[in-house]
Design a protein around this nucleic acid. Structure first.
Lengths: 187, 187
DNA sequence: GTTAATAGTAAGTACTTACTTACATCTTTA
DNA sequence: TAAAGATGTAAGTAAGTACTTACTATTAAC
């Protein structure tokens, strides 16, 4: 692994553990096993390094790579919900960085987040319109909103705030309930 | 207003704007209109001040003070949802602090958050068991989870991440959709 | 084998941070 | 009026921060 990669990975770990202000270039360099001078030569300054971390470890590619599976309506929804949740889980540290800097470093973080929301909603809208083909456009968007908010809220609350590592069964259980309500029946 | 109160208020503003590490005792004192020495005399150190801010500006009292209104099932749910959302909105800055410090300052922040989740779920369970009196206990808890996650996720995503200030109509619209799905019918 | 790129070491700069000490001023209370 | 408490000013400490400069060592390319 080249120095640049090692630094990016160390910065990712360090920013997610200590936040932007809390992370120091010294510690990042030490973790990466390179000198601090190398860090500054390759990235110029701390903020630029942060920006590159946000680009390199984004959850977006994971979301984009999710394909719509075959099956009945409820099955498709549940499967996509599962995949989204797992993508979020895999990029948990990245999301922690985003969370911890959303107030302080507004510009960069908010930009990345907006992009995330767009991709998220676009993907869901695609899925929902294939599953609920008879629904109106506004009806679809309502469902996407509720589904997205519930999934995201569940993830943030359990995995990030409470620091839990949910098992596949716990995730499935939540998603199946959610899909049941959205599909119209409560039984 | 006494010095202690002024400092607490200034610290609240400053922590929510810059995060724990980003906020400085100098700026807090300046904002409060007191000397930095007074700050240290009254609070000992920065961490202790932070702890007192978390206690003083918690969203818990707001949540606890929510009473269950009269009306049909759906009306009650929607009204409670609205009240919860408004409580969150009122303590938005407090929640930003919690969010930005959940990873860095784990102990204090996580403790406060756990307390928040408990109160949140307890309140919802009370409401749901009066609204869906025929549902089983596990069914009730499932509904509470979905309702809570969706409400919280919607708030965090829109108000905190995207920095929007949602109008009462937008809030109502989301909550009504959510209640409709949870009440079993999609029409 | 020379050159150019990539890394490291050592030292230092200019600044900021949390926090302290010593002493003076004002206000309230007894 | 005297004592006690709360606040301010001025100055400083020790440590940490991002970032720089000057120079050296290693590696790969031509």
């Amino acid at each position: 692994m080249k120095a640049k990669e090692k630094i990016l990975q160390a910065a990712y770990d360090c920013f997610s553990k200590r936040g932007y202000t809390g992370a120091t270039t010294r510690e990042i360099a030490r973790l990466a096993g390179v000198s601090e001078v190398t860090l500054f030569r390759l990235f110029g300054n701390k903020k630029e390094l942060f920006r590159e971390v946000l680009i390199n470890f984004s959850v977006i590619p994971d979301l984009r790579s999710i394909s719509i599976p075959e099956g009945s309506g409820s099955e498709v929804l549940a499967e996509v919900g599962r995949k989204i949740f797992l993508s979020l889980k895999e990029k948990k540290e990245f999301l922690k960085i985003l969370l911890s800097e959303i107030t302080g470093l507004a510009e960069e973080a908010r930009e990345v987040y907006s992009h995330f929301v767009e991709t998220f909603e676009y993907l869901l809208l695609e899925v929902f319109s294939s599953v609920f083909s008879s629904s109106s456009c506004s009806e679809l968007r309502e469902k996407v909103r509720v589904f997205g908010a519930a999934l995201f809220g569940f993830f943030v609350s359990e995995e990030i705030f409470q620091g839990k590592e949910l098992s596949p069964e716990e995730i499935d259980s939540f998603i199946e309930t959610l899909v049941r309500f959205l599909s119209g029946g409560s039984h």
